[in-house]
Amino acid sequence: MTWTTHSTRDVYTNPWIRVREDAVTRPDGSPGIYGVVDVAPAVFVVAVDDEDSVVLVELERYTTGVLSLEVPAGGSDGEELLVAAQRELLEETGLLAGSWSPLGAVWALNGVARAREHVFLARELTLGGPAVGAAEEGIRGTRRVPLAEALRLVREGGITDASTVTALTFAALELGRFP
């Protein structure tokens, strides 16, 4: 047996998310409710410079209350995904990239959310202007970290954002640098 949805009601919506509650029949045949968070597609950018270093942003995450080291990322805002990735890199780091490659996509928190995340590799980095979105998002600064060190930080708990871990893994596999 599979899941059966009988009805859906919106519990909360804003421009970024929709929270809904579904009346369902579970795979075992019992009735229940299932809460789902719908999120617009997001983009994650692994920006790698000529020295094989990854550009990371350090920001305070409101939801966890801790500083987090992450790849530049954000919502697609209805844009084509590559355009959104280019915008996010520029807004958060002030960088442009001359070369872009899509690396793959994953579902984030798929037990409670419908949140598709698309990962891009950005190369041939140049300064494009100020990081205009950094202050609004709580970005405290950027760091360039050798890819091998970024992977070590993942292993040692210095990078804990699951989406960043996924993006770095995609990039390391693509670049043949998985330790």
Rank of each mutant, 00 (worst) to 15 (best):
V106W: 07
A134Q: 09
L173F: 08
G78F: 10
L69C: 07
S53L: 05
D77Q: 12
G32A: 11
I17D: 04
T169S: 07
G176M: 05
V11K: 05
G111M: 12
L173A: 15
P102F: 11
Y12F: 10
T126Y: 04
G94R: 01
F120R: 00
A47C: 08
V46N: 00
L95G: 04
G98H: 11
E91D: 13
F120D: 02
L153M: 08
L175V: 04
L96W: 08
V57G: 01
Q86G: 00
L127H: 11
F178D: 05
V83I: 05
E124A: 15
G158S: 08
S68A: 12
A73M: 08
T142S: 09
T2M: 12
W16M: 07
A148H: 12
R123Y: 03
S101R: 15
T13N: 10
A148F: 03
V132G: 10
G176K: 06
F120Q: 00
T63K: 13
H118T: 15
R144T: 09
A73V: 05
P31Q: 06
A131N: 09
D49S: 07
E137T: 12
G94N: 08
W16Q: 14
P31F: 04
Q86R: 11
P41C: 09
P130N: 08
L125R: 01
A97T: 06
L103Q: 02
V145C: 09
A148P: 06
R143D: 00
L168V: 02
T64V: 10
E91I: 01
S99T: 15
V54N: 00
A167L: 03
S101V: 12
V36S: 10
V36G: 05
L147Y: 00
A172N: 02
V145A: 01
D50S: 06
G157C: 10
G35L: 12
L147E: 01
L147Q: 01
E92F: 03
A42C: 10
D50P: 03
G133S: 07
G104L: 03
L95I: 06
T93R: 00
E79L: 12
V106H: 09
E80S: 13
G138C: 01
P31A: 07
T160Y: 01
L81D: 03
E70S: 07
R114L: 12
D52V: 07
F44M: 06
G104P: 04
L89E: 00
G111N: 14
V132K: 10
F44K: 00
S53H: 08
W107C: 12
E149Q: 14
E21S: 12
T169P: 02
I159A: 05
V36L: 11
T164V: 09
S30A: 13
G78T: 06
R87Q: 08
V39Y: 04
E137K: 14
M1W: 07
R155F: 04
G29P: 06
I139F: 05
G78L: 03
S99C: 09
G157R: 10
P146Q: 07
